[in-house]
Amino acid sequence: MSDSIKKDVEEWYYHYSNSIFKFIFMMVHDYQQAEDLTHETFIKAYKNYCSFEGKAKPRTWLFSIARNITVDAIRKHKPIKLLKDFILIHKDSDPLPEDIVEVKENSKELYKALSSLKRPYREVIILRKIKGFSIKETSDILNWSEGKVKTTLYRALPALENQLVKEGFLNGRSI
C-alpha cells in the first residue's frame, strides 16, 4: 500500500514539482526556502494521502498543501525573515544564484512588481493568471469563496498595474 503511495507521490513530483517550486518561490522570494517548502509539500502529501479523496485533481490538492505550508512559513518567519533581509547589507546587490534559479531578464520587472503586492493579491494572480487555475480551483486552494477570488483578482490586477507604473516599468496604460 505504502509503496503505491510512494509511487504516486513520485509521479506527482515528476509532473508538478516545477510548478509548485515556482509558485512557492514567487511567494517567498527565497530559493532555499522554496526548495525546503517544496520538499515539505510532497512529504505532507505522502503523509496525508488518505485524506486525498480524488474529488479535486492532484495538482489542485498539491497546490492547496503548498499554499498552506507557504503561508504558515511566511507567518512564522516573517519577522525573522524581514530582519535577515534587512540586515544583510549586500542583499540588493546579491543576485539570485542563477545556477539554481533564474528569472529571465524579460520578466524581471513583472516579478519584482508582483513581489511588492500584498500576499492575497499575489496569491490570486499567481494561481489564476500564472498557473491557470479556474475560479473554482483557486477558491479550493485558497479556501476562499468564489466571490472572494473574483473580487480580489479584480482589485489585484490594477494594483499590479499601479506597481509597474510606480516602478517606472509602465506608462499608465489601462487594463
Binding site: S19, K22, I100, K104, S107, L160
Partner: peptide
C-alpha cells in the same frame, strides 16, 4: 498582463 504573466512562469527556471 495575461501573456506577460504566463511568460513569467516560463521565465523562472529551476
Amino acid at each position: 498582463f495575461d501573456k506577460a504573466l504566463e511568460q513569467l512562469d516560463r521565465d523562472i527556471v529551476w
